[in-house]
Amino acid sequence: MLYVLAKSVSKKENILETQKILEALIEPTIKEEGCIKYELLQDNTNPEVFFFDEIWESKEKLNAHAASSHFLEAQEQLKSQLESPMEVYLLNKIG
């Protein structure tokens, strides 16, 4: 299994629109083959910071997600909403 944290930092004036774009990714993504977990989280202290907490069966399944039309469309929409490009961390579970 592959664990992923994806961090997006919205421009302060775009928080609600950024959240809307990110939320729209949830339903189609959880239906994708190989998606075990896909949750959107928002920082309590800094509401412009969002994380996707993800678990995928494999790197290949994650790559398929990254090439999906809904993901690519969201990436295009987010370009003007975010302070900086999304940061993605590929992780291994310990213990």
Rank of each mutant, 00 (worst) to 15 (best):
L72G: 07
L16W: 03
L90V: 11
K37Q: 14
S80K: 11
V4I: 15
T29I: 05
A24P: 07
T18C: 13
E48Y: 04
E33S: 13
L91E: 04
A24D: 13
F51R: 02
I30S: 06
E13S: 02
E57M: 09
N63F: 09
P28E: 05
L62G: 01
N44K: 13
T45F: 10
A67W: 03
P85W: 00
Y38C: 08
S8D: 04
P85D: 00
V88F: 07
P85V: 02
E27W: 14
P47W: 01
K59E: 15
L82G: 00
N92A: 12
D53V: 13
E13I: 02
E76H: 09
M86K: 12
L22I: 05
E73V: 04
F71S: 08
E33T: 11
V4N: 08
F51N: 03
I15H: 00
S69V: 13
S84T: 14
K31Q: 15
L22K: 10
A74M: 11
K79M: 06
N46H: 10
I30G: 05
L40S: 08
L16I: 09
E23N: 11
Q42F: 02
E27Q: 15
K79W: 00
T18E: 00
F50H: 03
D53R: 12
K79F: 02
I21Y: 01
E60Q: 13
W56M: 03
I55E: 15
E54Q: 15
E73A: 10
L72W: 06
E13C: 02
T29K: 06
L41S: 14
E87L: 09
T18I: 00
K79A: 07
K20A: 08
W56G: 03
N14V: 00
G34L: 01
A74R: 04
E32G: 08
L82V: 05
L40I: 13
K20S: 13
G95D: 09
L41H: 15
E87P: 00
S68G: 08
K7N: 13
E57Y: 04
A67K: 15
A67N: 15
G34V: 01
K7A: 12
E57W: 01
A66I: 06
L78E: 01
S8N: 10
P47Q: 06
S8G: 10
E23M: 12
V88C: 04
L78K: 00
I94A: 12
I26W: 08
A6F: 02
N92C: 11
E33Q: 13
V4Q: 11
E87Q: 14
F51K: 02
I94W: 09
E54T: 03
H70N: 12
F50K: 03
T29Y: 08
H65N: 09
T29H: 03
N63E: 15
F71P: 07
S58N: 05
A66G: 11
